[in-house]
Amino acid sequence: MFQRRGLLAAPFALSAAPALAQAPAYPQRPVRVVIPWPPGQATDLAARIVMQRLSETMGQPFVAENRAGAGGMIGTDLAAKAAPDGYTLLAGSTGPIVTAPLVQRTPYDSEKDFTWLGITGLSSYVLVVPPNFPAQNAAEFVALVRANPGKYSFSSSGTGATAHVIAAWFHALAGLDVVHVPFAGSGPALTAVAGGHVNFSVETLAGTGPLIRTGTLRALGISLKNGSELAPNIPPLARLPGCEDFDAGAWIGLMGPANMPAPVVQLLDAAIGSAMREPEMRQRMATAGLEPQHHGSAAMAQYASRQRAAFREAIQRANIRIDG
């Protein structure tokens, strides 16, 4: 199948070559990549992995500029308002692009102000409980919690955070009536579950993984419909009746301001895709705790659109909002 796709792609590549050849060479100088989070955060780690490879393959340095604050909105807005010449890009992610505009006002329009370049990784989410929780699997969990509306509580990394919205989506599909207990970050949220102060949480694999491995928490299911390459023994929550459409992951990728030149978009799209097909790149993403999944420019826009629709419905059902 891969050989046949390669043969079909060849004529397109040849036909596109003259158009690209007529365009100015890109890049001709360093490319700034705005990372709207502090160094060491997941988006930062993933962006730097891709930036290093693009620097090598495209012949100019891709330079990180961390502009953290306001849940990623400060740096995201900076990139949205930059010149659309391909020399300022954004390390985009689900939080400021999809989640934030649905729960609060943002200084940018996430559906109009950006050019989509490519998803490079997904962060999966895991349903975790304390070791002594009576349910032994996801089906038992749903039966128990559904039979006791309002009795069980779950923690999140904050009201309106992506983890909160993903949990709300799962609750709606599974028909669960539970109490939300927000914390300032995923660390305190998971500590509360481990300590028995709340009953469960739906948090990132990167955050829950170490606690699962030490037996501090038990994993009952994972948010990706087809499961996780990084945790193949955790079954997808989509296997539960009513949850067949549950496919939730926080994506990370590269974007740019709206109206970037088409030839530049094509070059970056192709370069990102080529990089993400390399086994070494996929391994580096996995080491950073991310599912090494790639979606090109058009597929990225479609993925974000589907996610936005699902999140919007979950937010409306759970009445999630951030005051101000």
Rank of each mutant, 00 (worst) to 15 (best):
A219D: 14
Q293I: 12
S124I: 03
C243W: 03
N259F: 04
L8H: 02
D113M: 01
V193C: 13
A174M: 05
A309S: 12
R321M: 09
M281H: 03
D77C: 05
L254M: 07
T106L: 01
V202G: 01
A238W: 02
G242K: 09
V264I: 15
I119C: 13
A184E: 14
S305L: 09
L205P: 09
Q104D: 07
A163Y: 08
A64H: 05
S186C: 00
A19V: 14
A298Q: 12
Q316V: 04
P101D: 11
A163T: 15
P24W: 12
G175C: 01
V178K: 00
P84D: 11
C243A: 15
D44S: 15
A83S: 04
L211S: 08
P235T: 10
G158D: 11
N233K: 09
Q283K: 07
V165H: 00
L254I: 07
P292M: 09
Q307H: 04
F170M: 05
R48E: 15
P30D: 13
G40I: 00
P292E: 13
V181Q: 12
V265W: 08
A189L: 08
L230E: 10
R282L: 02
P257E: 06
H295G: 09
Q104A: 02
S156M: 05
V50G: 01
G185N: 07
P24E: 03
P182S: 04
A318N: 07
V34Y: 00
A262K: 12
A194R: 03
T162M: 10
Y108R: 02
M73I: 10
I222K: 01
A13W: 15
A68G: 02
L176A: 02
A161Q: 12
I222A: 13
S223L: 02
E280Q: 11
M281Q: 09
A143N: 15
V179N: 13
E56Q: 14
A298P: 15
K225A: 14
A194N: 10
